[in-house]
Design a protein around this nucleic acid. Sequence first.
DNA 1: TGTCTGACTAAAC
DNA 2: CGTTTAGCCAGAC
Length: 97
Amino acid sequence: MKPALTEQILTILAEIPPGRVTTYGRIAAMTEGATPRMVARALRELPSGHELPWFRVITASRRLADHGGADEQRRRLIDEGVAFDARGRVAKERLWP
DNA sequence: TGTCTGACTAAAC
DNA sequence: CGTTTAGCCAGAC
């Protein structure tokens, strides 16, 4: 039987390479039926202490989603070498896959 | 069961 | 490029 959507989402999340990013919609499309909102929910529900790269998930317009951890997210991406342009967008070459 | 909400998106201006 | 709008669908109440 197919794994729960949440499990599929987290499995995909764990495969995003360092220095690369992907979008809510792309992750959703890789699962068997999840929607971008479900991906967002899955990230929000992540327990603290996990080691999944939640900060490598951005919006379809390649900006950071609006949430409380956006500042930390931007910092961690920059630490990995992901740059933001003057309008706060990530270069599309950084998209994974 | 009905209504509201949200770490989203695509389309229309 | 920005703002708005409708669609989306699983949780919380």
